[in-house]
């Protein structure tokens, strides 16, 4: 191999790293941190109060790690997110399916769902507190409630958007009603299920933070809130970064692969 070949091979590897998957993500993160640091160092007058540098955020996290509080905040929040979001989605999918399948059920429940969809999780918060106090249950219910609607409505519209032709084709091949749901409606609704799942988890993520702040349960949300109380801007930024990075990682390693194995493979969406 000549040196030019080698150079080109190296260049190619680098290009591949920069344009694909995790490589692109890493470059994006590193770039944002550098930009943040530049702004904090050169453009802000009292950075410790208004925009602490990445380094001071890292130091504050080291401090909290040392005390052990950071890990416990983070895991508390994640556990709430996973349980509340999973249950919300697990209820939302069959409800959306039932509404999409059956006119009668849809006519009965749709107005009710539509009503509650407009009443956000934060708006129901006070009444949940009255029922369950400032407890983890309260936070979980708010997350569940918030994540339920996006997935349910998306599954509903997804099922309705499946072309009648596909259903007829399956029926003439001998499919039962159940087999039509399994082989035609569910896969046909996959693009909407993917969108709904993404929205639901995104909504759940917001509900966790807001719920913790309002209910005063320990976690990332509460950590941000107390950061303001104690004028600890670095702690606030740390919380924000952890929220954002967790979301990006979740999206990148869980939702995206799920989509590329299904709807992209089937040519139902172009990326």
């Amino acid at each position: 191999m000549t040196s030019i070949d080698l150079q080109q091979a190296r260049l190619f590897k680098w290009k591949k790293f920069a344009t694909e998957g995790a490589g692109r993500l890493i470059i994006f993160l590193v770039g944002s941190i550098i930009l943040w640091w530049l702004i904090s160092a050169f453009l802000i007058e009292r950075p410790d109060r208004y925009l602490p540098s990445p380094l001071s955020v890292v130091l504050s996290s080291a401090d909290m790690l040392y005390k052990g509080s950071l890990i416990s905040f983070y895991s508390d929040t994640l556990i709430r997110l996973v349980i509340g979001g999973a249950v919300g989605i697990a209820i939302g999918i069959p409800v959306g399916l039932a509404l999409g399948l059956n006119r009668f059920v849809a006519d009965m429940f749709y107005p009710l769902m539509n009503f509650f969809q407009s009443v956000s999780g934060i708006a129901i918060f006070p009444v949940i507190v009255i029922w369950f106090g400032n407890s983890d249950t309260t936070v979980l219910i708010v997350i569940l409630y918030t994540s339920f609607f996006p997935i349910a409505f998306n599954v509903l519209s997804g099922v309705r958007s499946v072309p009648v032709r596909y259903i007829q084709a399956a029926r003439t091949l001998g499919a039962s009603r159940f087999q039509v749901v399994r082989d035609v409606l569910l896969p046909g609704a996959m693009p909407s299920i993917a969108v709904g799942t993404r929205l639901s988890i995104g909504f759940a993520w917001r509900a966790v933070i807001a719920g913790e702040m309002l209910a005063g349960r320990p976690g990332l949300g509460n950590m941000i809130f107390s950061g303001q109380e104690f004028d600890n801007t670095a702690q606030i930024l740390l919380g924000m970064v952890m929220i954002g990075v967790t979301w990006i990682v979740l999206d990148h390693f869980l939702l995206r692969p799920l989509e590329s194995d299904t709807i992209e493979r089937w040519g139902l969406v172009q990326r």
Binding site: R165, Y166, Q168, A169, A170, T172, L173, P187, T262, W266
Partner: peptide
């Protein structure tokens, strides 16, 4: 299944 149908188009399942 005793009567199979071939439609004009758009009837095989994309998935």
């Amino acid at each position: 299944p005793d009567r199979g149908v071939v439609f004009q188009e758009h009837a095989i399942l994309p998935w």
